Amino acid sequence: MKKSIICILILSLFSSFTFAQLWPKGALKQSDWNLSLKNMKVGDVLEKEYISCFGGENDAVLASSWLAAEGNPPKKLQPYEKDENGDSWDEYEIDWANQYRYDTWTEMYGPGKCFDGKTDTAWCEGVEGDGIGEVVIAWVDVKRPVRIWSGFGKSQKTWETNNRPKDIKVFIIQGEIVGQSVNGPNYKMKVIGEKKLTLKDINGWQPLDLGEYNEIDVGYYKKLDSYELQKSNTFIAVQILSVYPGTKYKDTLISEISN
């Protein structure tokens, strides 16, 4: 009996891991821009739920726009052909692998790039001009210090030639778990606070001061409500109000928002 239970548990864990690896992300398409974010305010419950940990089209809820991927999509691999990372897939996995590679390519400047832990990737707004009014959401714990890397931190040149946000509006968002997928929780997100900040024009980390925000139905600034934020299911939305102009391009980017 004990052996049977152990076998079932091992099979269950293996199946869940395999299923998670093969779960389709879906391509991040510009037609899926979450335009409603540009009009959000304190007290709003965002109209779209966030399915976490998958990326791809599931991240479309997290930004009002993003720049389309540049260059050509990755070439399709043949069974057992190794990719640039030395990985290969058999004939049963190859279709998934090629779709996954394509979907990942579409995320080149998607919202997930501003909280992927890498400062050489970035979210880039996708509209004409400087991107004033555009919004991106990052998954962070607002109870801990939060920092931002403004601009495209891939190199000093990419940082200088592209726009960097200057004045921003920061929204504090509380996530309520409303379901569970194979890779993580699904969230309904409510805007519980906001604050305007001015960023320094530096190619590096700088703190986001979230010590105070403008609460719903409160006409003054007060400390974060510890009851509302006792869980770490929190997010930050950043809206671009003005920019430091780049020397060549009008694209405005944020490399990272994280703890």
Rank of each mutant, 00 (worst) to 15 (best):
S4K: 15
S4P: 02
I5P: 06
I5E: 15
I6V: 15
C7R: 14
I8F: 15
F17D: 09
F19Q: 05
W23Q: 10
P24S: 06
G26K: 10
K29V: 05
D32Y: 09
W33T: 05
N34S: 02
S36G: 02
K38H: 00
N39K: 13
G43A: 02
V45M: 06
E47C: 09
I51E: 08
C53N: 15
C53T: 12
G56V: 06
E57G: 10
A69C: 01
E70L: 14
N72V: 09
L77G: 02
K82V: 11
D83G: 01
D87Y: 08
W89N: 08
D90Q: 10
D90G: 13
I94P: 01
A97S: 07
N98K: 11
N98H: 11
Y100G: 06
Y100S: 15
T104A: 12
T106E: 04
T106I: 04
Y109R: 01
G112D: 08
K113V: 07
D116R: 07
K118A: 13
T119H: 07
A122S: 14
A122D: 04
C124K: 13
V127P: 00
V127N: 06
V135Y: 01
I137F: 03
A138P: 05
V146C: 07
V146W: 04
W149C: 13
G151A: 10
K154C: 12
Q156E: 15
T158D: 03
W159S: 00
R164Y: 07
P165T: 03
G175S: 12
Q180H: 09
Q180E: 14
V182Y: 00
G184D: 05
G184F: 03
G184W: 00
P185G: 01
N186P: 00
M189V: 01
M189C: 07
V191C: 05
I192W: 00
E194L: 04
E194K: 08
L197A: 07
L199R: 02
K200P: 00
K200G: 12
D201T: 07
I202G: 02
N203F: 01
W205P: 03
W205G: 04
W205D: 06
W205E: 11
Q206D: 02
P207C: 07
L208I: 09
L210I: 09
E212V: 13
N214Y: 12
I216S: 01
V218P: 05
L224T: 00
Y227C: 09
L229I: 15
Q230V: 08
A237D: 09
L241I: 05
L241Q: 10
T247K: 09
T247A: 08
Y249W: 11
K250Q: 10
I254Q: 05
S255E: 12
